Simulated scan of single mutants.
Amino acid sequence: MANSRTRKVSEEIKKVVGELILAGIKDPRISKLSSVNHVEVTNDFRYVTLYISSFDPKHDVSLTIEGLNSAKGFIRKEIGKKIKLHYTPEPIFKPDHSVEHGMHINEILGTLDIKHDDDEDDEEDEA
């Protein structure tokens, strides 16, 4: 389990990169509907893995990752300005498909609920 300092640094990095996605980076490949869902910082604070998702159904998250990778130096510099650490961590961007996965599971559960409601109606009719 991550210690308290690692958790705090992760949350601060998440906040900084989230703000940069919204207002700081002017790359057209980066969707403004993208967000940082999860952040993992190594124990020595040398690397940070940021899991990115896009809420725009017309936009491919791989384009956003491409844009963020091209702005990696700028992002690292901004993290260093906002968070005082001995080493500024090197950002690593990965797509996060947990939102799409959750929506898919929700759709499946929705179909199960419909079938379950129909079964209850049949039982009430028989009684």
Rank of each mutant, 00 (worst) to 15 (best):
114 I>T: 11
85 L>H: 01
24 G>D: 10
117 D>G: 04
2 A>H: 14
52 I>R: 09
17 V>K: 07
13 I>E: 03
84 K>M: 08
83 I>R: 01
70 S>A: 06
61 V>E: 00
44 D>A: 02
55 F>S: 05
68 L>R: 04
104 H>S: 14
71 A>Q: 10
124 E>R: 04
64 T>N: 07
73 G>D: 12
94 K>C: 10
47 Y>S: 02
18 G>F: 15
32 K>F: 13
32 K>L: 12
78 E>D: 04
16 V>R: 06
17 V>T: 10
4 S>V: 11
115 K>M: 13
103 M>L: 15
12 E>I: 00
64 T>H: 05
19 E>G: 13
105 I>S: 10
95 P>D: 03
108 I>K: 07
71 A>F: 08
70 S>H: 12
118 D>R: 12
67 G>D: 01
92 I>M: 14
113 D>S: 13
32 K>A: 11
101 H>A: 14
104 H>G: 13
42 T>W: 14
46 R>K: 04
117 D>Y: 13
67 G>R: 01
87 Y>L: 08
11 E>P: 14
50 L>Q: 03
38 H>L: 08
117 D>M: 06
90 E>C: 06
6 T>N: 09
92 I>Y: 12
106 N>D: 15
61 V>G: 02
91 P>M: 04
14 K>F: 11
55 F>G: 06
59 H>T: 00
12 E>Q: 08
102 G>E: 13
16 V>M: 11
67 G>C: 03
18 G>W: 14
69 N>F: 12
104 H>D: 13
93 F>S: 01
15 K>W: 15
72 K>G: 03
38 H>F: 14
68 L>N: 07
84 K>R: 06
114 I>Q: 11
112 L>M: 13
50 L>C: 05
69 N>M: 08
71 A>C: 09
77 K>C: 07
37 N>I: 01
93 F>R: 00
79 I>V: 14
19 E>K: 10
29 R>V: 13
36 V>L: 05
3 N>D: 15
28 P>M: 03
21 I>F: 15
67 G>N: 01
124 E>M: 07
56 D>G: 10
22 L>G: 01
37 N>P: 02
123 E>N: 05
6 T>R: 13
72 K>E: 05
63 L>G: 02
65 I>E: 15
96 D>P: 13
15 K>D: 15
18 G>T: 10
38 H>S: 03
82 K>D: 04
57 P>E: 06
30 I>W: 04
15 K>R: 15
65 I>K: 12
90 E>D: 14
102 G>L: 12
20 L>M: 14
111 T>Y: 15
72 K>Y: 10
3 N>C: 12
113 D>K: 09
108 I>Q: 12
73 G>K: 09
29 R>G: 05
16 V>I: 15
34 S>W: 09
54 S>A: 06
22 L>S: 08
24 G>N: 06
54 S>Q: 02
59 H>E: 01
89 P>G: 01
87 Y>F: 09
8 K>L: 11
67 G>A: 03
84 K>E: 15
21 I>R: 09
116 H>F: 15
12 E>T: 04
55 F>D: 04
66 E>P: 09
34 S>L: 07
22 L>P: 08
44 D>G: 02
102 G>R: 05
111 T>S: 14
120 E>G: 02
71 A>K: 06
41 V>M: 05
42 T>Y: 11
92 I>S: 10
100 E>D: 14
84 K>V: 09
50 L>P: 02
51 Y>W: 13
38 H>E: 10
36 V>I: 09
3 N>M: 11
100 E>P: 11
92 I>F: 15
108 I>T: 08
99 V>K: 04
120 E>T: 05
